[in-house]
Amino acid sequence: MRTGSRRSVFRRARGDSPAKRAVIHAVLILACVMSVYPFLRVVSVSLRPSNQLLSTDLALIPPGASLENYRALIFERDFTIWLWNSLVVSAASVLVGLMLAATAAYAFSRWKFPGRRQGLLFLLTTQMIPAGMLLLPIYIMVVRLKLFNTYTGMAIAYSVGSVPFSIWILKGYYDTIPRELEEAALVDGASPLVAFYRVVIPLSTPALAIAGLFSFMTAWNDYMMARVMLQKPNMFTWPVGFQKLMDQFQTAWGQFAAASVLVAIPALALFLYSSKWLVSGMTLGGVKE
């Protein structure tokens, strides 16, 4: 038997040599540091007292660190409102988006109806429209429908915007679910729709979670659309609200950083929570086992 080093790095090798394992760990640790460090710097700024924003010090916990910025943010700004609004809008757009995408993806996955290819391509095409091109017309539509300044208007715009991508993810995943499972249910006398809800949906948790995660992030992070659609301070989502921390010339950097940290936490938590599905649910046109 040859030694571990001759064996493929691509197989799930139990026999990697210790040296190789050390190198792999070293590379991964370096990559992790690079991916996390900028965020740690933001955390660091948020802890700094406001008179020492700029510093050549690379220490992450600054001298004189305090939570003052967080206190001011939570108790003196509308921050909790912004967070709540973002949460409501994002959650609603996930639910609405999944309602629309789950069945549509099933149609794409199980039937070879005429226009299927064109339909899938059309969905991909919608992703090619440059940002900003649809901004003004969508805004006009929303105003005509009297939906500006409402959660409803925002949620509809975001959910429909994320439907094409959700359909792709869900279709890819449905493809990996053997048809025999539904057929068994059909034999038992269930209608196709019931088979779908009873058999396919429960098996698709990973893909639903990932599609939901994507819609959530789209809505959570959007500034462009929110900026024109929201004209009441009590409706602001956080990206719009954050602008208040920046005056024409002055910026409350410390509070801005603190707000960034607090806003990043829900997103990070969501990623952490869904990380167990993140790999298995992302089957873009995936292969069948």
Partner: peptide
């Protein structure tokens, strides 16, 4: 591959994706 700390690595490595772009870009 099966390895120790795989979950931790994977979690830390997706941080740039999970952070709101507005924030990471300004940072």
């Amino acid at each position: 591959r099966p390895m120790r700390g795989k979950g931790v690595y994977r979690t830390l490595l997706v941080v740039p994706w999970a952070l709101p772009q507005v924030i990471s870009a300004l940072a």
